[in-house]
Design a protein around this nucleic acid. Structure first.
Lengths: 211, 211
DNA sequence: CCCATCTGAAAATGAGCATTGTCAAATTCG
DNA sequence: CGAATTTGACAATGCTCATTTTCAGATGGG
């Protein structure tokens, strides 16, 4: 059981736990992002993290919770980037804001293929709880797109449409493309991909079907 | 061990095996498409199928093989529909052919939410072998799109572009949207969704970015 | 220095399956 | 009919973890 807590190795209990949690998260990113969630075991993560299983269960209730924590952090990071991007482009036309926000969101996945695999593949259908988490987060994203685009419609920049449909299409398309890009070697430059992704976002949110 | 085989219950060995396989596949569709692959157990599938585990292992080497067989059949069905659709619209403009082919592909998923879940969610990252299967099948699809569109470019109907990128975007977008539609109740009519999907396909394959 | 905490390693426990084996009853065919 | 097959139910096995517990040693406050 966890006692009151006193200093050890020059660190407080909180600091020691934080370091162990940090190592666990880093290892989880490596193993889940490389071998997949199904192939991930607690003893495996603990061994690679230099954390005893006893300490693991002092930090997390179970295996699923580590994955949830990892995914929460990845998502929170991307969402913060989106918020920052939207804040930085406030007042600019939607043609600037949306592509910038999309690329801000994707930055962590473009930098690290393991993150792309976790956020776009391993997260899917891993468990009922995690699936709900994924869908809830995505709903937030859909709402953001809807809000921004509706405001843009009000400014007369674009025509109104089914924003939920458009947002889901954007998320799905971007997911498939980035994961594919992260997987393949050799691949086009990140700059080239970002140009294509920005164009894609614009097309999906503003193009009229060529009837 | 499996003997030479003789009639039993008025059926040959092949027929008996085929019926058991049929029941297993139907049950697997129900359980995987409802509870998810991770929550699927052999004893569970066998009990619901009225097939003993002993017979299961006479038909399939293991659990993963049942899933592979199920996914193979689902995919083969969709691919056959695509081929039939493309054959039926031969000679027509790409603006007719592609939306028709996309809807042909999606028909089984639009008819049965369990199929949508299996093909679009449960299949992802289930295991290395299954993930490879998914990516290989998707590559075939990408090739088909590329072939059709390149031919259309030759006919002067559309401008050339990165067809692999466009195809991946289309597949990713359609996947996310159809699964979302299959999941939500209440939802728009199938006809309305199909119109949106057809427009989406055209936009992704033919629209120029509004620079 | 003394003792309560804390730590890493490793063993112990136990659950949940996948997979295999047993067997009595049912069926077929010579 | 009677031997050989086939069947379904179910017991038995074994393995892979998740989770808990043990324990000897390290550390720190008083």
């Amino acid at each position: 059981m966890v006692q009151e807590g006193r200093s050890y190795g020059g660190l407080t209990r909180e600091e020691r736990d934080a370091q162990r949690r940090q190592r666990l998260l880093e290892t989880a990113k490596e193993i889940i992002g490389t071998q997949g969630y199904a192939a991930t075991t607690i003893p495996g993560v603990c061994a690679a993290s230099k954390v005893s299983t006893r300490h693991f269960y002092e930090i997390y209730p179970g295996k699923e919770d580590l994955f949830v924590d990892l995914y929460d952090r990845i998502t929170a990071d991307s969402y913060a980037r989106v918020a920052a991007s939207l804040g930085a482009t406030a007042g600019e036309p939607i043609f600037e804001r949306v592509p910038a926000a999309v690329l801000a969101y994707l930055d962590p996945m473009l930098k690290d293929p393991r993150v792309a695999r976790i956020a776009f593949v391993e997260i899917m259908g891993a468990s009922p709880r995690i699936e709900k988490l994924r869908l809830d987060y995505r709903e937030t994203l859909v709402d953001i797109v809807g809000t921004e685009c509706t405001a843009s419609v009000g400014r007369g920049e674009i025509l109104d449409r089914d924003w939920r449909f458009a947002a889901l299409a954007l998320v799905g398309a971007v997911t498939a493309i980035v994961y594919d890009w992260a997987l393949h070697q050799p691949r086009s430059s990140r700059e080239a991909l970002e140009t294509q992704l920005a164009d894609l976002a614009l097309v999906l949110l503003t193009a009229d079907p060529p009837r």
